[in-house]
Amino acid sequence: DETGKFLVLALYDYQEKSPREVTMKKGDILTLLNSTNKDWWKVEVNGRQGFVPAAYVKFL
């Protein structure tokens, strides 16, 4: 149950560059965990948590 969690859509592919980031593919649906930083949002994708560039995702 994803109640209270926001979902975001990956607009572009992103390859993680550090262990704190996660890789996503364009079209992936991600669970948004934290968006307090304007540049990097914490998400969960494929069972992994990490950061992606905020400009690469949008709210569903």
Rank of each mutant, 00 (worst) to 15 (best):
L32T: 02
G27Q: 02
L9N: 03
L9I: 15
W41E: 00
E44A: 09
G4N: 13
V43N: 00
T3G: 14
K5M: 12
L30F: 06
W41V: 09
L30H: 02
S35C: 10
K38H: 11
V45T: 12
E44G: 06
A54Y: 03
Y12K: 13
Y14A: 01
K58H: 12
L7P: 04
K38F: 07
L33C: 06
E16G: 14
E21R: 03
T31H: 12
V45A: 10
K38A: 12
T3N: 14
E2G: 14
V45D: 03
Q15P: 06
T31F: 12
Y12F: 15
S35F: 10
D1R: 01
V43L: 03
N34K: 07
K5A: 11
G50M: 04
T23E: 04
L7N: 07
G4F: 12
A10S: 05
K42F: 15
P53T: 01
I29Q: 06
V52I: 10
Q49M: 11
T36S: 14
T3S: 15
D39A: 11
V8K: 01
Y56D: 03
G4I: 13
S18T: 14
D13Q: 03
V43W: 00
F51K: 03
F6V: 15
T36Q: 12
G47C: 05
L32N: 01
T36G: 10
G47R: 05
A55D: 10
E16N: 07
E2Y: 05
T31W: 11
F6S: 13
K25I: 08
M24F: 10
L9V: 15
F6H: 15
Q15S: 14
D13V: 02
Q49G: 07
K58F: 10
L33E: 02
F51E: 04
E21G: 11
E2D: 14
E2I: 14
I29E: 05
Q49F: 08
T3M: 11
T31P: 11
F59Y: 12
L33T: 05
V22E: 00
K17P: 04
K26Q: 12
K5S: 12
A55L: 09
K25W: 08
Q15V: 14
Y56A: 14
V43A: 01
V22N: 04
V8G: 09
K58V: 15
T36R: 10
P19S: 09
K25T: 10
E16A: 14
K58C: 11
D1I: 14
D28H: 04
G27P: 00
Y12L: 09
A55M: 11
T3A: 13
Q49H: 09
V45F: 12
I29N: 03
Q49K: 10
M24I: 15
W41F: 11
Y56P: 00
I29C: 05
K5D: 08
D1K: 02
T23A: 07
G50V: 04
L9P: 00
A10D: 00
F51R: 03
V8I: 10
K58S: 14
D28L: 04
K58R: 13
L60H: 09
Y14M: 01
R48A: 07
K26E: 08
L33H: 06
E21T: 07
L33S: 02
L7F: 15
K26I: 05
V43Y: 00
R20E: 15
T3V: 15
Y56V: 06
K5Q: 14
I29F: 06
S35K: 12
V8W: 07
K58I: 15
K5W: 11
V22L: 12
P19D: 15
G50Q: 01
L9K: 09
L60A: 08
N34Q: 09
V57M: 05
R20I: 14
I29P: 02
Y14Q: 00
D13M: 03
L60M: 13
N34L: 08
A54R: 10
K17S: 14
V22W: 05
G27M: 03
E16T: 08
D13H: 04
R20K: 14
K5G: 12
N34P: 03
E44V: 08
F51D: 04
P19H: 10
V43C: 05
Q15T: 15
K5H: 15
G47H: 06
A10W: 02
D13Y: 04
D13P: 06
I29M: 07
A10F: 02
L32F: 06
S18L: 10
L9Q: 13
S35P: 06
A54W: 02
S18R: 10
K58Y: 11
Y12P: 00
M24K: 00
T3C: 10
D39Q: 11
K26T: 07
L60N: 05
P19I: 10
S35N: 12
L33I: 13
L9R: 08
A54C: 06
V52T: 01
G47D: 08
E44K: 07
T31I: 14
P19F: 10
P19Q: 11
V52C: 04
S18V: 05
R20A: 14
D1V: 15
Y12D: 08
N37G: 11
A54V: 06
L9M: 15
V52Y: 01
D28C: 05
I29A: 04
V52L: 02
V57D: 00
P19W: 07
K25Y: 12
L32V: 10
S35M: 14
T31L: 14
N37C: 08
V22H: 03
F59G: 07
K38P: 13
T23W: 04
E21A: 05
F59T: 10
L32G: 03
D39E: 11
E2N: 15
G47Y: 05
D28P: 00
L33Q: 04
G47A: 05
E16P: 14
W40P: 00
P53E: 01
K38I: 10
L32S: 02
K42H: 12
N46W: 07
Q15R: 10
A54N: 03
Y14E: 01
V45S: 12
A55T: 15
E2W: 04
D1H: 13
D28N: 06
S18G: 14
K42S: 07
R20F: 14
G4V: 13
K17D: 06
V45I: 14
N34R: 06
A55W: 07
F59D: 08
A10V: 08
R20N: 14
R20T: 14
F59W: 10
T23L: 02
I29L: 10
L60Q: 07
D39Y: 14
L30G: 09
T31E: 10
P53L: 03
L11G: 04
L30N: 00
P19K: 09
V45N: 12
V8Q: 01
N37F: 08
V8P: 01
Q49D: 06
